[in-house]
């Protein structure tokens, strides 16, 4: 069993990102979508935290990233940028998808 966690909140506003990282088991995947993408930015405390969570597979949704004026070059190391097609593939590959609302 492996879980895909979805986070759609800015870590600067809500606790969804923190709570997700506290509960996600090693080996599970975390995908940041919508305002969640702000959790992967370089030079920020949440970004550092996300970058250091090497026990997780970490992803950011590129459509939401670009919409907000950022690109892969702004993200911490170790994060993979995927599009909606990749999102679907991740959902297929994980038996459980858990949203952190």
């Amino acid at each position: 069993m492996s879980t895909l966690h979805l986070v759609n909140k800015s870590p600067f506003e809500k606790d969804a990102f923190d709570s997700c990282l506290r509960h996600a088991l090693p080996g599970s995947a975390v995908l940041l979508i919508e305002d969640g993408i702000y959790g992967a930015l370089q030079g920020t405390a949440p970004g550092d935290c996300f970058g250091q969570a090497t026990e997780l597979q970490r992803y950011v949704l590129v459509e939401d990233l670009r919409a907000r004026g950022f690109g892969a070059e702004h993200l911490v190391v170790g994060v993979q940028v995927i599009d909606y097609e990749g999102f679907v593939d991740l959902a297929v590959a994980h038996e459980l998808v858990q949203s952190w609302l």
Binding site: E63, F87, V88, D89, A91
Partner: peptide, 19 residues
């Protein structure tokens, strides 16, 4: 809120992949 948009984009992408 963006949720309805995200759901729709996901649905479209899934359908495009044959799901």
């Amino acid at each position: 809120h963006q949720a309805a948009d995200s759901a729709w984009h996901f649905a479209r992408a899934a359908l495009a992949k044959g799901h």
